[in-house]
């Protein structure tokens, strides 16, 4: 009788354990010793793909389509002086181009031994990015698109793979190349010792002719980064009529803006305008051939 009772209890526990296990197969396991640690403060190395936004017309390396280029060329940075836009912040793609480091924290479900989410902290003009690891579904396509977007993540080996959707329309570079609210961003987080490599694949059916791929490196920061942004106070209240928006009509972008990449760095205008072929090494050969002919 006692033996039967033990068998029954064992069977019951086994089935319950199996049910519990099956109900959360996608949860990141807290105690998985082979997974790298991402939490902490990461300083940018800023040795590649960092913000090319100091020149008004520098869209090099961006596979803009015609619509994207038209939007970029009509953009005026005076838009940031509009009262409603002074505190708007940038899209999550700014993670790849901004000057900041990353403060990564994690929230745990201690009862299940799992990570609920990672959070990449805010910067003064970048909102925090939550990466949900608990297998939750995407929001409805009718749900509000936010400045941070909605990101889910999972492990592929020791790589953290994330996908961000539901982002607001914004810009992929601060000098005007746009991103739409249909854009998505896939990220891969690799840790190599004290370095963290972040790869982003940004897909935007509205403004890009092909996916944009960026990489960026961070290293463990000896100093503690803060995960919170300072308050933003609207300051400038200059006269802006409500039915006027700073922008440039076609062909009206100032020539000194259009020529700056050429005059300062010798970059041909077509390369500065962000055509897809300028992404590839073969384009250098094309430029060499053209330059040789012109000489």
């Amino acid at each position: 009788m006692c033996r039967n009772l033990v068998a029954v209890c064992g069977l019951l526990c086994g089935v319950l354990w199996a049910i519990a296990g099956l109900s959360e197969p996608t949860y990141a396991q807290l105690n998985a010793s082979n997974l790298p640690e991402f939490e902490g403060s990461w300083a940018p190395t800023n040795n590649e793909d960092v913000s090319n936004d100091s020149v008004p017309v520098d869209y090099m390396g961006l596979p803009l389509n015609e619509e994207g280029r038209a939007r970029a060329l009509s953009y005026s940075e005076s838009q940031l002086g509009m009262i409603e836009r002074q505190c708007q912040g940038w899209a999550p793609t700014y993670l790849m181009t901004g000057p900041f480091g990353m403060k990564i924290t994690a929230q745990y479900d201690l009862s299940r031994g799992s990570i609920i989410r990672f959070t990449i902290g805010a910067w003064h003009d970048k909102l925090p990015l939550d990466i949900w690891m608990d297998g939750r579904e995407l929001p409805s396509r009718y749900a509000e698109h936010t400045r941070s977007g909605f990101a889910v993540g999972h492990w592929e080996g020791t790589t953290l793979v994330t996908r961000t959707t539901h982002m607001k329309a914004s810009f992929i570079r601060k000098n005007g190349p746009p991103s739409s609210d249909r854009a998505t961003m896939a990220n891969h987080f690799y840790r190599h010792g004290n370095f963290l490599t972040l790869i982003a694949v940004i897909d935007d059916p509205v403004y890009l002719s092909e996916p944009l791929i960026w990489t960026r490196d961070f290293q463990v920061s000896p100093t503690r980064l803060t995960p919170i942004a300072p308050p933003c106070i609207v300051a400038f209240e200059g006269p802006t009529a409500q039915d006027e928006v700073p922008h440039y009509l076609w062909g009206k972008k100032p020539e000194e803006f259009m020529n700056e990449m050429t005059s300062k760095y010798g970059v041909p205008r077509e390369a500065a305008l962000g055509f897809p072929e300028t992404l590839y090494p073969e384009y250098r050969e094309k430029l060499k051939v053209r330059n040789n002919r012109s000489q």
């Binding site: 505190c87 708007q88 912040g89 805010a122 925090p128 941070s148 942004a229 308050p231 933003c232």
Partner: peptide, 10 residues
């Protein structure tokens, strides 16, 4: 009205 001055909360 948007989230001001705390822009970190959407």
């Amino acid at each position: 009205i948007p989230s001001l001055p705390d822009v970190s909360r959407e």
